[in-house]
Simulated assay, not measured.
Amino acid sequence: MEIQSLNELQAADERSLAFSPFGLGERIRPEDAAKFQQSQVLGIELADQVAEVTRQTFDRLRRVYA
C-alpha cells in the first residue's frame, strides 16, 4: 500500500463514476456519484434482532464506505 495525500484520498475513484441510479453506464459527476453511493448505504435497515455490537460495526463500516 502506498501513502496518499489528502487530495488523493478525497478524489473520486473513476470506476465509481460509472454507477448511477440508472445502472452501469455513462460517467456521472463526482458530486452525484458521492450522493448516490451514500444513498445506497443509508437506506439499509437492520432487523431488530441484530445484536448491538453488530449494529455498531455496520454503522462504522457504513460511514467508512460513504
Rank of each mutant, 00 (worst) to 15 (best):
K35S: 05
Q40V: 14
Q37K: 14
Q10V: 08
Q4V: 10
D59M: 07
D48Y: 02
D59G: 00
F58Q: 03
E2Y: 05
G43A: 14
N7F: 09
R55C: 08
F22D: 13
A18Y: 09
R27E: 12
A18G: 01
A11C: 11
A47I: 02
L46H: 08
T57Y: 05
F22G: 01
L42Q: 07
L17W: 08
Q49G: 02
V53I: 12
D48T: 12
Q38F: 02
G23V: 09
L9W: 08
Q4W: 07
L17S: 07
L9D: 02
Q38C: 09
A51R: 14
A66K: 01
A33C: 08
Q10P: 00
E31R: 15
I28N: 12
T54Y: 05
Y65E: 06
V53D: 15
M1E: 11
I44N: 01
V64N: 04
L46C: 08
A18I: 08
V53Y: 12
E45N: 09
A47L: 12
A66S: 05
E26V: 06
R62I: 02
A33D: 02
A34T: 07
P30V: 04
D13K: 15
A34G: 05
Q49I: 06
F19M: 14
G25Y: 11
E45Y: 05
E14Y: 10
Q37H: 14
Q40S: 01
I44L: 11
G23A: 07
A51Y: 09
R55H: 11
F19E: 05
L6D: 13
P30R: 06
F36I: 11
E45P: 00
D13T: 14
D48E: 15
Q40I: 13
S20M: 04
Q38I: 05
R29I: 01
A51E: 15
G43M: 11
P21V: 04
F22R: 09
D32M: 04
R29Q: 14
M1W: 06
E45G: 10
F58A: 02
S5Q: 07
Q56A: 11
R15S: 10
R55E: 13
D48H: 07
R27I: 03
A11Y: 04
Q4S: 05
F22H: 10
L17A: 07
A12C: 09
K35P: 00
L61P: 00
Y65M: 08
V53N: 15
F19P: 03
R55W: 12
R63P: 00
P30T: 03
V53G: 07
S39K: 10
P30K: 03
F58L: 02
